[in-house]
Design a protein around this nucleic acid. Structure first.
Length: 486
RNA sequence: GAGCCGUUAGCUCAGCUUGGUAGAGCAACUGCCUUUUAAGCAGUGGGUCGCAGGUUCGAAUCCUGCACGGCUCACCA
């Protein structure tokens, strides 16, 4: 049985049709929006407004209604904001006022026309001369004062969240601006934006579990990409020397406040650059985004104050671990593994894994201001260039802010023989049951055999960057439709 | 995958400890009110208390299982 509130509104729709009014018309063209009127005319005094007789038309959703008998006030919400309207009998006439009261509910879309005035309390208000029902709404909106709190409804019916909770819309507008700022930054530096496949025959470019899908005609399994990396580097081989892609990546891993199965990454590659160059590039990129979108470099993230003013700190993984845990942890693998074990850190018997996990759990988590972490072990960096003076580590860094990894970057491995051996080493780990380790990719090696220029590349977690800059505690606050059970 | 917490009217929440046939505000409906803005005043309707079992004379309340969600941990970015 349906709710009485909906039944009532359905009856109104029928009645409207009977009297010849289309409750879902599409012939109203607003010539203005709330923000324009508020910013331009909001500054004028009531007296000044009286001289302004011009009429404006607006369209939007009614979000509040106050009936005074012979007049009424309402607030309407359009793409730009909220504005108040005033309907009075001696202007619109008795019949029209009656119609408004009887047929227009909170939630409906209306189009209005009218002049501007200021109320006693100083709010810029449209004195409505004409109005039109544009779209009838059947379901009532969430409560006006507390808004919508139930997180399950907020995520499943995000449209209600957007209507009720003003700050939610703000966050998503910021998200859009952040992505635009990233694009602007890279475009100005002659990077070319590209699109590479999402369906991959081999899931490569990262250490993660893929989603598997199936192509009927080809009769083969395909994987949703876990990273665009290997395709972007094929483009380096092809001579696209500065290239980037902003797009969705999919990882079949746990869901949490930091993880969504599909998330947005920007990956960029630049020929003849090194990971050192990329520290500066990433620093400039993030600062430029922060300044262009937020006009500042100081941010509060939850309990932390984050100062992004360059130059950013650089932290050597091995040196910082020695300082924190003593030199002896690197004497041999047994000591390292047992130390990791005692801290409850999974190392899976992989030396590099133990090192970076130990770092993340004991040092990385406390990094507040941006810092570049470098000295990544070779066995957890199968696509990164080997360091020239220390063959055990790679020319790779990660950017940590607020205890979280925001970006990962390295000088690219372009030696096809070394790359093949790295894949073989990965396969050994994979054979031990660690499924997420890298697969052999002959096609990629073949590309390297044709010559890839030396280059540096980086991947930036866009969702996490947006979280950080908008002070959002959960990734679900920056993704419109986060993954939930159906 | 594990632990803890939550699910009551369209929305926001009480009620559960101590079992006795469900309550407020907003929204809705009927009146009154021509500068209100969480408008106000008077009145009315609205609920299989997440689902399924159990205990009991009697369950929103106690117990068990399940579903969905949140937080923490693990995997991961």
């Amino acid at each position: 049985m349906e709710n009485e509130l909906i039944e009532l509104r359905k009856r109104k729709v029928e009645e409207l049709r009977k009297i010849g009014i289309n409750p879902y018309s599409n012939d109203f063209k607003p010539d203005n929006d709330a923000e324009k009127l508020l910013s331009y005319y909001g500054k004028l005094t009531g007296e000044e407004l009286k001289k302004e007789t011009k009429e404006f038309s607006l369209a939007g959703r009614v979000v509040a209604l106050r009936d005074f008998g012979k007049s009424l006030f309402f607030h309407m919400l359009d793409r730009t904001g909220r504005i108040q309207g005033y309907v009075r009998r001696d202007i619109v006439g008795e019949e029209n006022l009656k119609f408004f009261k009887k047929y227009i509910d909170i939630g409906d879309f209306i189009g209005i026309k009218g002049s501007l005035f200021k109320t006693k309390t100083g709010e810029l208000t449209i004195n409505v001369s004409e109005f039109k029902l544009v779209t009838k709404t059947l379901c009532p909106l969430p409560e006006k004062w507390h808004g919508l709190r139930d997180v399950e409804i907020r995520y499943r019916q995000r449209y209600l969240d957007l209507i009720s909770n003003h700050e939610v819309k703000e966050i998503f507008i910021r998200r859009s601006e952040i992505i635009k700022a990233i694009r602007d930054f890279l475009d100005k530096r002659d990077f070319i934006e590209v699109e590479t496949p999402i369906l991959h025959p081999i899931a490569g470019g990262a250490t993660a579990q893929p989603f598997v899908t199936y192509h009927n005609t080809l009769d083969m399994d395909l994987y949703l990409r876990i990273a665009p990396e290997l395709y972007l580097k094929r483009l380096l081989v092809g001579g696209i020397e500065r290239v980037y892609e902003i797009g969705r990546t999919f990882r079949n891993e746990g869901v949490s406040t930091q993880h969504n199965p599909e998330f947005t990454m920007v990956e960029l590659y630049q020929a003849y650059a090194t990971y050192d160059d990329f520290m500066l590039l990433i620093e400039e990129l993030v600062c430029s985004v922060a300044e262009n979108v937020f006009n500042k470099l100081q941010f509060n993230y939850q309990d932390l104050n984050i100062d992004m003013k360059p130059p950013w700190k650089r932290i050597n993984i091995v040196e910082s671990l020695k300082a924190a845990h003593g030199d002896e942890i690197f004497q041999n693998d047994e000591i390292l593994f047992s130390r990791a074990q005692s801290l409850g850190i999974a190392h899976k018997g992989i030396r590099g894994k133990a090192v970076i996990e130990l770092f993340e759990h004991t040092i990385g988590k406390d990094i507040a201001d941006p810092a570049f972490v470098f000295g990544f072990p070779i066995d957890v960096s199968p696509l990164a260039r080997r360091n020239d003076s220390n063959p055990d580590i790679t020319d790779r860094f990660e950017l940590f802010i607020a205890g979280r990894e925001i970006a990962n970057a390295f000088s690219e491995l372009n030696d096809p023989v070394d790359q093949r051996q790295r894949f073989i080493d990965q396969l050994e780990i994979k054979a031990r049951g660690e499924d997420e380790y890298h697969a052999m990719d002959e096609d990629y090696i073949s590309a390297l055999e044709h010559g890839m220029p030396p280059a540096a590349g980086a991947g930036i977690g866009v969702d996490r960057l947006v979280m950080l800059l908008t002070n959002s505690p959960s990734i679900r606050e920056v993704i419109f439709f986060p993954h939930l059970r159906p």
